[in-house]
């Protein structure tokens, strides 16, 4: 249940922004979650609900962008969509694939009434 730690991380980042920019409210929090980041999105949704209670994020909508995985073949250089970490290159079959996208865990933006 590391999703709770991730939800806590989101709250800390949002609270820091609220403090630094003297925001009066947080209407929406936009997050990027890579499909290969090892995060169960349903568990994350529940975890965010839990940590947001009685905080600045209590009434905020969460907009989640699921980022598709992308691999770069170390042998033939092909870039391709991957759904799992051990996907071999569809062209040459090599397993030497570097994940170049899909492991993101990021707070992208905050919508505020200021």
């Amino acid at each position: 249940m590391h999703e709770l730690s991730i939800a806590q991380g989101i709250l800390e980042l949002v609270e820091e922004q609220v403090r630094r920019r003297s925001l009066s409210s947080v209407e929406e929090v936009e997050i990027d979650v890579g499909r290969l980041a090892g995060v169960e999105t349903q568990a994350l949704t529940i975890a965010i609900e839990c940590v947001a209670r009685n905080t600045v994020m209590e009434n905020a909508r969460i907009v989640r962008n699921d980022i598709e995985g992308e691999g770069l073949c170390g042998d033939c250089g092909r870039c391709f969509v991957i759904e799992e970490l051990f996907a071999p290159c569809p062209d040459c079959g090599s397993c030497a694939v570097r994940v170049v996208k899909g492991k993101e865990l990021r707070v992208k933006s905050i919508l505020s009434n200021k």
């Binding site: 991380g9 865990l105 707070v107 992208k108 933006s109 505020s112």
Partner: peptide, 15 residues
């Protein structure tokens, strides 16, 4: 009347 603030920070950055 609303402001979109770009954050672009890694959620695990504290860790």
């Amino acid at each position: 009347g609303q402001t979109v603030l770009t954050v672009e920070q890694d959620i695990l950055q504290h860790n």
